[in-house]
Design a protein around this nucleic acid. Structure first.
Lengths: 230, 230
DNA sequence: GTACTGACCGATACACTGTATCGCTCGGAT
DNA sequence: ATCCGAGCGATACAGTGTATCGGTCAGTAC
C-alpha cells in the first residue's frame, strides 16, 4: 500500500523525468561533472548517486569500489586524448600537449595520473596510436621512449597543477606570484640560507607554465632523438 | 577531584613511561612509521595519536590539518635526500636516484610527490644544493632544467610504484608479470584491437625497472646537455 | 492459475574519517 | 588568595565507503 490516503486525495508522484536507465557511462559522466566542479573531494558515491537520482548502493551494481570509479573516470578522459601528427616526434609531442590540455580542463586528473596502471580501453587505444606512430623506431626502443615521455608528462602536469592551486589559494594573480613567489618564499630566501636559490629566483628570467612545459619536453625529445638515430 | 574513592583505596596510575613531550618531529616520525607499514590509508590522526599515547585533538596544537602533516612527512623524507657528485649532470642524476630510492623505502611518497609545492626547509635545502651545483650553467637555464628533471622523477616514480603495487596485488612475481603482463592484458592484446602494442609487447626486450628509469633519465640529461652547451 | 525461485534493490548499519566546539584543569601572575 | 589564560581532551557532527539482509517483483515450472 502506498499510503493511508485514498487515490483521490493523493497527489500524483512528482513528474520527474525518468532518469534513463543507469549505465557506467552515465555514472562516470556524473562523477566527472562533480570532480570538475569541486575537485576529487567533491566526488563521493552518495553525491554521484543523488546526482543521478538513485540510491547509493545502486552504483555497486556497476562498479565494485570507488577506486574502480576513479579508474573509469581517468579512462574516459583518455578517450578525449587522441594524439595526432606525422612521425614519432610530432605524435609524442601531441600526446603530451593533449594530456596537459585535458588536465587543464579536469584538474583532478593531475591527482590520479600515474597513480594506477592505465589499462582501460581508451588508454590502450591511445597507447596503440602512439606505438603505431613509432613504427620506424627500433622495436626495443619503443617502450623506454614512451615510458619516459609519459613519466615526464605525469610529473610536469602534477607540478603545474599543484602550483596553480597554490596560487589560487593565496588569491594572487599569476604575475604577482611569479614576481614575489609568495611572501613566505620571499622571507625565506631573504634569510640567506639558500643563496644559490635566491640568486636564481632574483636574476633568472621567469618562464610561464606553457614555456616551462614545452622546454622540458624538448629536452627529453632531443635526447631521445639523439639516441634512436644512432 | 579524581574520583569518588579515597586516595588510600585508589591504585596509583599505571606507570607508563612518560611519552617524551610531544613535538612535530615525534608526530611526523610516528606518521611515517604508520605509512611505511600500511600505506597512506594507514595514517589517520587517531592512529597517529594512539601511537603516541595521546588524544587525537592534541595533535592540532602542532599541526593545523592533516594536509599539513602530510607536507611535514614529505619534507622529512627530503631531509634524507642529499644529492652528491661533481658537475651538474652527476648532481642531477644523484638527486633523481636518491628520490627514487626514498620512494622505494616509503612507497607512500609516490602518492604525495608533486601533489603540492615543496617549500619545506629540507626540500629547499635540497633545491639549494642542486642549484648550487649548476653554478656553471647559464642562470636562465637553471630553473627549466631542474623543473624538467623533477617532473621526470615524479612521474617515473609514480608509474613504477603503481606498477609494483599492481604486481603485488596479483600475487605474481616480477618475471611472470613482465612475461605475461597479467592475464587481462594478454587477453586484451589477443583480441587484435591493438596490433602495434601487441607486437611491441611480444617482440621487444623487456627492461627491468632500474634500467627503464635510468634510460629515461639519460634521454632527458642528454637533451639538456645538448642545449646548455651550445 | 498458482507456487516458487532468483535476481535485484535499497534501507539500514557499521566502522571510521577529519575537525569544531567548549567545558575543565592547572600553572603562573597579580 | 585570586584571577586569568592557555592548553587539553571528551564529545559531537557531518561525512565517508561499503556489508548485510529483508523485501519486492519478474519470470518460470508445474
Amino acid at each position: 500500500m502506498v499510503s493511508g490516503m485514498l487515490v483521490w486525495e493523493r497527489p500524483e508522484p512528482p513528474n520527474r523525468p525518468v532518469p534513463a536507465p543507469l549505465s557506467r557511462e552515465r555514472i562516470v559522466r556524473a562523477a566527472i561533472q562533480l570532480a570538475d566542479a569541486d575537485g576529487l573531494d567533491g566526488v563521493s558515491l552518495r553525491k554521484v548517486a543523488t546526482a543521478l537520482d538513485v540510491r547509493p548502493m545502486r552504483l555497486y551494481g556497476y562498479i565494485a569500489s570507488k577506486e574502480e570509479l576513479l579508474d573509469l573516470m581517468v579512462d574516459a578522459v583518455h578517450g578525449e586524448v587522441r594524439p595526432v601528427g606525422d612521425g614519432w616526434r610530432e605524435v609524442l609531442q601531441s600526446l603530451a600537449e593533449a594530456t596537459r590540455h585535458a588536465a587543464h580542463e579536469h584538474e583532478w586528473l593531475a591527482d590520479l595520473l600515474g597513480g594506477r596502471p592505465q589499462l582501460g580501453p581508451h588508454a590502450l587505444a591511445s597507447g596503440e596510436a602512439v606505438v603505431a606512430a613509432l613504427g620506424d623506431v627500433d622495436v626495443d626502443a619503443v617502450m623506454p621512449v614512451v615510458a619516459a615521455v609519459n613519466a615526464y608528462v605525469i610529473g610536469a602536469v602534477r607540478r603545474e597543477v599543484a602550483e596553480r592551486r597554490a596560487e589560487r589559494a593565496t588569491g594572487m594573480d599569476e604575475k604577482r606570484w611569479q614576481a614575489s613567489l609568495g611572501p613566505y618564499l620571499e622571507r625565506t630566501l631573504a634569510t640567506g640560507r639558500f643563496p644559490a636559490l635566491a640568486t636564481v629566483v632574483r636574476d633568472a628570467a621567469h618562464l610561464d607554465a606553457d614555456d616551462t612545459f614545452r622546454i622540458g619536453l624538448d629536452f627529453l625529445l632531443d635526447g631521445i632523438e639523439a639516441r634512436i638515430s644512432r
